[in-house]
């Protein structure tokens, strides 16, 4: 593999990963549910592009499978399904998070800094620009924050999916070092989460809970 191809690839990946991070922060401050779903689709598209770039730049062709799966599953199918669900059951469009927007933004900023601090000792030898792992950990942590902060069942699903994007990003970043089987595991993970999400939706959320408000899923205590 030519050295400058992987050099360009590395820069491109850093750029795309940073864009994923920006989109994640937009998700944190975005109030409308539909926009949230679209932002997630866009973020997944970036993930698919990173996978494609890795596949070409490092000749790791099996990573293309992740790119294709992400494109079909998380850019097209799941957002379509979620949007249809939102429209059909006419749930309230505006989200009311527990922590208000400026405070969430600050918390997520702090989480980003924390992730970079955590990733620092490990990135010295990284091939993929030192950013990717930091971004992956940020996606993971802010995904957890979103999961805690949002009331709607659907937005928790979205948060779980962005968390998953973070893990897959880490998987792609590590693949370039040639750990065998990582891609296969990541693919399996993709499938598991997709099944879980579909399972949640198939459980006829509507029939059981009209509002899909998780703060009303609180009958079980003690």
């Amino acid at each position: 593999m030519p050295a400058n191809a992987s050099e360009t690839g590395s820069r491109l990946i850093t750029l795309l990963a940073s864009l994923m991070l920006v989109l994640q922060l937009l998700v944190v401050v975005q109030r409308m549910l539909i926009t949230n779903i679209r932002l997630f689709a866009l973020q997944s598209l970036l993930l698919a592009s990173i996978a494609t770039v890795v596949a070409f730049a490092y000749g790791a062709w099996h990573v293309l499978v992740i790119a294709v799966l992400t494109l079909i599953g998380k850019v097209l199918f799941l957002p379509w399904l979620l949007e249809r669900l939102v429209r059909r059951i006419k749930i309230e469009q505006e989200l009311r998070p527990f922590v208000n927007m400026p405070a969430s933004m600050l918390i997520c900023g702090a989480l980003t800094v924390l992730s970079y601090v955590v990733a620092r000792p490990f990135t010295a030898l990284e091939r993929l620009g030192s950013n990717t792992l930091g971004v992956a950990i940020t996606l993971l942590l802010t995904g957890f924050f979103l999961m805690i902060n949002r009331r709607k069942a659907l937005t928790q699903v979205l948060a779980l999916l962005t968390t998953e994007n973070g893990v897959i990003l880490a998987a792609i970043a590590l693949t370039t070092y040639g750990i065998p089987l990582i891609v296969e595991l990541a693919i399996f993970f993709d499938v598991v989460v997709a099944v879980m999400v579909l399972g949640i939706l198939v459980f006829r959320i509507r029939e059981s809970f009209d509002s899909m408000d998780v703060s009303k899923l609180n009958e079980l205590k003690w």
């Binding site: 779980l160 968390t163 949640i200 998780v214």
Partner: peptide, 29 residues
């Protein structure tokens, strides 16, 4: 109530799944 329990199980379980996968990657690395 069973639905609520399943919901929590899936969400908390999904988080655990993600973390253990990331841990496996780290061990490989």
């Amino acid at each position: 109530r069973a639905f609520e329990a399943t919901w929590k199980y899936l969400l908390v379980g999904g988080t655990g799944i993600a973390l253990s996968l990331l841990g496996s990657f780290c061990l490989g690395y």
